[in-house]
Design a protein around this nucleic acid. Structure first.
Length: 416
RNA sequence: GCGGGUGUAGCUCAGUUGGUUAGAGUGCCAGAUUGUGAUUCUGGAGGUCGGGGGUUCGAGACCCCUCAUCCGCCCCA
């Protein structure tokens, strides 16, 4: 085979497309219930948009950017995540001028140049939403609630919502220093680049799976001890709101998120169906991002949801919806019936019935075989007898029963 | 980016310590009294054994490189 899909990309084949459609349509529906509106942004943007917002030291920017220089010498990046482009569009088109909170959702491909693995693609797909304006924990709770309702609607149950607060800049800085003090002994034995990474962003060490790191962190302080009173209160109120919504969640000081723009609330939903990639989605509050991109100081909160990972989790849960069937397969019992057969097909299609007919000039038996395979409910047969009598033979492919009816009645039966 | 596993027909897989024209099941196509989809029977098509190089009289099996994929790490969706 000469060509194949590029590394880290995959084709969604007809057998799987309905599952994707189901997930995407469910997301649109649930978002609509909460008043979120769809926004579609380009899949490539100025590299700097992501470098500035995600953080130069973040893994996404430092090693996973899918970037290139275009013919005009521009440094372009295929978007690695959805929030920065949405905020860019929000500012560019002054969406805030409409007044009130701006509630947006999106669906589309994202790109990260990493080593592919199950549930980790170079072209991945996300749904997500952003709630711009409100600073209240009510907004945080709503975002988490939409996320949870979405997972319920696609049939996933028993998922764990993990929440945490990482506070504001100052609290994080003081906490980071405390973590580094705790790990000083361990860090001394590490290779320089690991030490450098740790010093640039100590919080990242908190969700490490390395047993040594976990051991070294034993008894370390938690971010909670460093939170400002406002952050503390915000988080407490959020937890109360989640209780009120009947959402099961767990406080997890290990949730820190990989992007620099998060403030206060961060959350994640995990599934044990995904192996090492246990995270189904991630989100949180990002009160500094709009200002960082040159807009007025605007609090905001959002979530990004991995479609591939949702589908993997659904596979494990066998949560598939049943798919629809084709309407009718038109069978030509003799070649001279093919012209009137096409006419019959046009009539049925204009009445909204999906029809299939042979395009290969196959024999009668083969046409029935195709009809069977297509999953059609009905086979409509046109041959010498039918043409002579102005009838159509209607066969129910499930029961096997058939009868000849005047053409108009046959159409009515299939349409009805 | 690092470590390990896998790669033979559309799909699931056999293939002995290297030895003739590489197999099975399933799927596909055709036929079994010329107007009927299951099953059955018969026949047929389909493989540069992921790709390239090397060792050998001889490689699907062994060695090197490469591509893809899976598992783990880093990190995340």
């Amino acid at each position: 085979m000469k060509f194949q899909a590029q590394r880290g990309t995959h084709d969604v084949l007809p057998v799987d497309a309905p599952k994707w459609r189901f997930v995407e349509e469910t997301w649109r529906r649930v978002c609509g219930l909460y008043g979120y509106e769809e926004i579609r942004t380009p899949i490539f943007e100025d590299f700097e948009l992501f470098a500035r917002t995600s953080g130069e030291t973040s893994d996404i920017v430092s090693k996973e950017m899918y970037d290139f220089t275009d013919k005009g010498g521009r440094h372009i990046a295929l978007r690695p995540e959805g929030t920065a482009p949405v905020v860019r569009a929000y500012l560019e088109h002054s969406l805030a001028s409409a007044g009130g909170p701006v509630k947006l959702f999106y669906i589309g491909p994202m790109f990260r140049y990493g080593r592919p693995q199950k549930g980790r693609m170079r072209q991945l797909h996300q749904t997500g939403l952003e709630c711009l304006g409100p600073a209240t924990p009510e907004a945080d709770a709503e975002v988490i609630e939409v996320t949870v309702r979405f997972y319920e609607a696609i049939g996933l149950e028993g998922l764990t919502v993990l929440v945490n607060s990482i506070g504001r800049q100052e609290a994080r800085a003081r906490f980071g220093e405390a973590v580094l003090r705790q790990l000083a002994g361990w860090l001394a034995d590490q290779p320089p680049e690991a030490r450098e990474r740790a010093e640039k962003n100590p919080m990242r060490l908190l969700d490490s799976k390395d047993p040594d790191v976990k051991a070294a962190l034993e008894g370390a302080p938690t971010i909670g001890e460093f939170l400002e009173p406002e952050s503390r209160e915000h988080f407490d109120r959020l937890c109360g709101l989640l209780d009120e919504a009947g959402i099961r969640y767990r406080l997890d000081p290990g949730i820190v998120r990989g992007l620099d723009y998060y403030t206060d609330t961060v959350f994640e939903v995990q599934s044990d169906a995904l192996g090492a990639q246990s995270s189904l989605c991630g989100g949180g509050r990002y009160d500094g991002l709009v200002a960082e991109l040159g807009g007025p100081s605007t609090p905001a909160v959002g979530v990004g949801i991995g479609i591939e990972r949702a589908l993997i989790a659904m596979e494990a849960a066998e949560a598939w919806p049943t798919s629809g069937r084709v309407g009718a397969y038109l069978v030509a019992a003799t070649d001279s019936a093919r012209v009137p057969l096409r006419s019959l097909a046009r009539e049925l299609r204009s009445a909204g019935v999906s029809c299939l007919a042979d395009l290969d000039g196959r024999g009668l038996k083969a046409q029935f075989k195709q009809a069977d395979r297509s999953g059609a409910c009905w086979a409509l047969i046109l041959g010498e007898d039918e043409m002579a009598g102005g009838t159509v033979t209607v066969k129910n492919l499930e029961s096997g029963q058939q009868e000849s009816l005047p053409r108009a009645e046959a159409v009515a039966r299939v349409v009805g």
